[in-house]
């Protein structure tokens, strides 16, 4: 497995004196969708920021094609790795069209601000995310779902082999969540992009991941194919939640149903309190 482009070795990630990740080794399989799950504040975003060189490791390193990220020029990294933060902040008053265009920035020379490649990438990104109708609208004025699609379009326009997305479905209703995740998978299948997504919904993770990484308190508890990783024991260990894992009626993959069978009758309990 040494052929993979993005790896981390002995990663120690801290904010000031607070250690969030302590000695983590990781390899992101090329050409697959990797999903990172774990409870709130376990360090998912922190890890993703390190993989996208937004956070400098205290110790250890992130390697792209065997070279430490810190040694590669920032712009060069941005041509290979795209990253969409959990809560990105747009420039005030920017339109969707201009936002998506900004995704081309790492490819620009100062005297080439709008090439054929730019045009192609921007058009395709807007088509795929169906943001064409929003082109003239200010990003500040969009609904959560529309805004999220605009951001994803920007990340797509960046046209990188590796794409890191931090909870891209957070603000979306269920239909748009599925839409975004389908889009991510499509990108991966059709364009061979390597995608890393942080998700908080276990079942979505199970459904869309080729490779699943379960984290707890800055450590990797388990990783591998969703069917192997997601078990009642794992959900108990990682989230502290009793559950039953059954086959997903749609995909046949694992489906987590919270609760321990027979031990409670939820409606009866609610009834007593009401």
């Amino acid at each position: 497995m040494t052929g993979n482009r993005l790896r981390a070795e002995g990663l120690v990630l801290t904010y000031e004196d607070r250690t969030v990740v302590d000695g983590l080794d990781l390899e992101i399989p090329d050409g697959q969708v990797t999903v990172i799950i774990g409870p709130n504040a376990c360090g998912k975003s922190t890890l993703l920021r390190a993989l996208g060189r937004l956070l400098k490791p205290r110790r250890g390193s992130v390697l792209l094609d065997g070279t430490e990220l810190a040694r590669i020029p920032t712009k060069r990294v941005a041509q290979e790795i795209g990253l969409l933060p959990q809560t990105p902040v747009p420039p005030e008053g920017i339109t969707v069209s201009e936002l998506v265009t900004r995704g081309r920035q790492p490819h620009h020379k100062w005297w080439q601000q709008w090439t054929e490649a730019d045009e192609k990438a921007v058009t395709e990104a807007m088509d795929r995310t169906e943001t064409g109708d929003l082109a003239e609208r200010p990003v500040d004025e969009l609904s959560g779902g529309q805004r999220q699609r605009a951001w994803i379009a920007m990340a797509l326009a960046q046209d990188t082999d590796l794409l890191l997305l931090d909870e891209p479905t957070t603000y979306l209703d269920i239909a748009h969540q599925v839409e975004v995740l389908d889009l991510v998978r499509q990108l991966n299948r059709e364009r061979g992009r390597t995608v890393v997504v942080v998700l908080h919904d276990l079942n979505q993770a199970a459904r869309y991941a080729d490779h699943l990484i379960a984290m707890k308190a800055g450590r990797i508890v388990a990783q591998g194919a969703p069917g192997d990783v997601i078990t009642g024991d794992l959900v108990q260990e990682v989230f502290g939640l009793a559950s039953v894992v059954v086959p997903d009626p749609v995909t046949g993959g694992p489906l987590v149903v919270p609760g321990a069978p027979g031990s409670t009758d939820r409606s009866a309990r609610i009834g007593r309190h009401g």
């Binding site: 937004l54 990253l83 990105p88 100062w110």
Partner: peptide
Amino acid sequence: LLWAARAQRSVSFDDDTATALGVR
């Protein structure tokens, strides 16, 4: 100043997004 006109644009995002777009 010519440099700044472009730089000005690139720092108009939050820090993480700007860095992800290749801005030092």
